[in-house]
Simulated assay, not measured.
Amino acid sequence: MRTADPLHLQLLRLLRDNGPVSRAELADQLQIPRPRLLSELERLVATGFVTEAGMAASRGGRRSTLVELNPNLRFAAVDLGASSVDVEITNGRLEPVAAYTEAADIRQGPKVILHRINELLAKARVEGVHDRLDAIGIGVPGPVSYRDGVPVSPPIMPGWDRFPVRELLTREHGCPAVVDNDVNIMAIGERHGGVAHSVDDFLFVKLGTGVGCGIYLSGEVYRGIDGCAGDIGHIQVDPQGPMCTCGNVGCLEALFSGAALGKEAAVAARAGTSPALAERLTQRSELTARDVAECAMEGDVTCIRLIRDGGRRLGGVLAGLVSFANPSMIVIGGGLAHLGHILLAEIRSVVYRRSLPLATGNLPVVLSELGARAGVTGAAVLASNVAFEQAS
């Protein structure tokens, strides 16, 4: 396999992140001789990834020409959750030019779900959003072999084990594709354009149907040898707890996740301990974490307790991770982030109380800045990276 040119990658990522830049400024930023830079840029222009963008402001003497990523570059970013799919088409600067969101049941299996994703990408082409895609990035809600581009024994994704997701997307669209765990792409998105933009060592905790943790160390995602690093939802927090989807008992995910909170809300409603939840249950067949959040905001004591109990359990797991990895930030995202400051306060309380002062003295625990867009943002970053690697 051909090794990507590190200088080409640097150039393309600089243009992606900074927009049009003069040749003189690029030479200064990369600290390379201008003749070499001009030679490298010529090669990238020949690939179609870089174009000229007019004249730069004068710095005294002859004006330099601006260069930029080809404005016709198109990347597809897919964030596949347990019950929804978000698709964005972006330009080379990772600015969205089209977006599609719809419900999707991951349990329908890879053929049904990927067929629908292909239909959405084809719809974008028919609508004139792109003539062709330059790369695709996709996140899925389960462990992934990043090297092979396949999910591996994902607990909530029946039928997906070892399914060739990357190979299918590459063949279908004639462009490189990359597959990662959904929480990893959220961490990458938050690092690229969110609250962790300037942070090299942080944890991104996704709270949704499941619970996962993206781990950033020294400016890179840490995936582990087999791609399952950060699967904190299956850390045991109660040996006497309920059965988890993974087959073990008392996992964090079985006690605090979107599904677990919905079950606890239904129990509270039927037991009469929460009149607000009981009233909602008479109007629909099931309750969700959003019901708990809304009732808590209205002052329902039982709902506040449910959120605090979950925050305490999650905080205990995170306290252990803080002692182990000593991150400089913890970011909370995913669908359950709407539980808001009741949840955040409980997590902070436990983490700060149970971790050593040296590890928490400068440790912000914050909500995701990108929110629902963290996943597609990270998928677009991965797509652009794999496209740049092939271009160089």
Rank of each mutant, 00 (worst) to 15 (best):
M1Y: 04
M1K: 07
T3A: 08
A4F: 10
R16C: 04
R16Y: 01
D17K: 03
R23S: 07
L26V: 02
A27R: 13
D28V: 15
P33T: 08
R36P: 04
G48S: 09
F49W: 14
M55N: 00
S64T: 10
D79N: 04
D79Y: 01
V87W: 06
E88C: 03
E88D: 07
R93Q: 15
L94Q: 10
E95S: 15
E95M: 14
A99S: 15
T101E: 04
T101F: 14
A103L: 15
D105F: 06
I106K: 13
R116P: 10
L121P: 07
D131I: 01
A135I: 04
I136W: 01
V140M: 03
V150K: 10
V152W: 02
P158I: 12
G159A: 11
T170W: 00
H192S: 08
H192P: 00
G193C: 05
G193D: 13
S198P: 00
F202W: 08
F202D: 06
K206H: 09
G212F: 08
I215P: 00
Y216L: 13
R223Q: 11
A229H: 07
A229R: 06
G230A: 12
H234Y: 05
I235Q: 07
V237R: 15
V237W: 09
Q240G: 01
Q240S: 07
G241D: 10
T245L: 06
T245C: 05
L252Y: 02
A254G: 02
F256H: 12
G262L: 03
A265R: 12
A268T: 03
A269D: 12
G272P: 07
P275E: 08
L277D: 00
A278V: 10
L287P: 03
D291E: 14
V292W: 08
A293P: 01
E294K: 09
C295T: 14
M297D: 13
G310Q: 06
G310D: 07
G311E: 12
R313Q: 10
L314H: 00
G320H: 12
L321V: 06
L321G: 05
V322E: 06
S323T: 14
S328Y: 04
I330W: 09
I332H: 00
G333S: 06
L339P: 02
G340I: 04
H341M: 10
I342E: 09
Y352L: 14
R354Q: 15
A359S: 13
P364C: 14
N385T: 14
V386L: 03
A387M: 10
